[in-house]
């Protein structure tokens, strides 16, 4: 069966936008029409990958359909291997793609990129890396979201049942910073320093950690712990992974004072606690149904210190970010083919 559609009345950008809207395609922003010529150009030199069916619709994408979505998102051919790695990573069973797409939670497919491909594509891991402005960040994350929408069928209000959604559902892709005083996250997870790696997680948008006053690592971690200790995240009772994305200045202070990812993880496990009094009685009952009890007079923010992943990204300034997850997911890393 042909995957080529003839749209005879679509001859300009406005008609293309209308055609997309009529078919439920796209994220509401303008897209580039995936003509056969553009898709062929996108696929020139593309690596061979094996992909399975994408929930919730259960259709297995082809390289051509992924390339069509990459064209729509604004990708260049060089971006496609990162998109393919991300699509493969979210298909890992531990990521729980079906649950994360169909949930009422606002999670989005976060993509963090490590290794040499960052510079080759112009991926931003510096100032405003979680915001707008870098084409590679914008289009790679957007291409993944469009694949999940179009092939996976996660259409808002239909099979994507998110109560409020989040801006991260448009695109959520950034690079690790080279200004890390420790091993990059990909290396912490066992990859070689020369590997280009994507790490995905069904994630909430970043929660800012503003700390301009602290001058020691211990003080900064007090602020981080307070930001993490909030009763409204899924991690409290669904558990699962979460990511601490330290700004380079906070990371430098921590490293100067002898902190490492391991010691930061252990310290936050002990100190990021949610007082029982901050959790309603109804929620406490719900937590029990999920097998979660307080540890003394407070709840932990996840079920294991190892569930907190630590990386560095951002530019100048005294900000970091805590990125909670859907809970029923995992941080999954894959080498870019």
């Amino acid at each position: 069966m042909s995957d080529v559609l003839d749209l005879p009345d679509v001859d300009d950008a406005w008609a293309w936008m209308a055609a997309c809207e009529e078919r439920g395609w796209g994220d509401g922003l303008p897209t580039i029409p995936p003509t056969e010529e553009r898709v062929a150009a996108m696929l020139a030199g593309a690596p061979a990958v094996e992909l399975g069916p994408l929930p919730p619709r259960g259709v297995t994408p082809t390289l051509r359909s992924i390339a069509a979505n990459a064209v729509m998102a604004g990708c260049r051919p060089a971006d496609l291997p990162v998109v393919l790695a991300a699509v493969g990573a979210v298909q890992d069973e531990a990521y729980n793609l079906h649950g994360s797409l169909a949930t009422t939670h606002p999670c989005a497919p976060m993509v963090m990129v490590s290794g040499p491909v960052r510079a080759a594509l112009g991926l931003n891991g510096g100032g405003n890396c979680l915001g707008q402005g870098a084409r590679a960040n914008a289009v790679i994350g957007r291409a993944l979201s469009l694949v999940l929408l179009h092939v996976g069928g996660a259409r808002p209000g239909v099979l994507d049942r998110s109560t409020q959604g989040s801006p991260a559902k448009y695109t959520f892709c950034f690079a690790e910073s080279d200004e890390t005083p420790w091993d990059p996250l990909a290396v912490q997870r066992g990859f070689a320093a020369g590997d280009s790696v994507v790490s995905v997680m069904a994630a909430e948008p970043p929660h800012n950690v503003n700390d301009h006053g602290s001058t020691t690592g211990a003080e900064i971690l007090l602020t981080v712990a307070g930001t993490m200790a909030q009763p409204g995240s899924n991690n409290v009772y669904v558990r699962g992974p979460h990511l601490l994305l330290l700004g380079p200045e906070h990371a430098a202070t921590l490293a100067r004072d002898g902190w490492t990812p391991a010691s930061i993880r252990a310290h936050l496990w002990e100190h990021a606690r949610i007082p029982v009094a901050h959790v309603s009685e109804g929620n406490r009952r719900q937590f029990v149904e999920w097998g979660v009890e307080p540890d003394g007079d407070a709840y932990t923010v996840s079920d294991d210190p190892e569930n907190l992943h630590i990386a560095v990204a951002g530019g100048a300034g005294k900000h970091s970010a805590w990125i909670p997850s859907f809970g029923g997911t995992a941080l999954v890393s894959r080498v870019v083919p």
Partner: peptide
């Protein structure tokens, strides 16, 4: 305009 269907794929049988 001829485009590649962005929703296309292989359906489960």
């Amino acid at each position: 305009m001829h485009i590649v269907d962005p929703t296309s794929g292989i359906a489960s049988s």
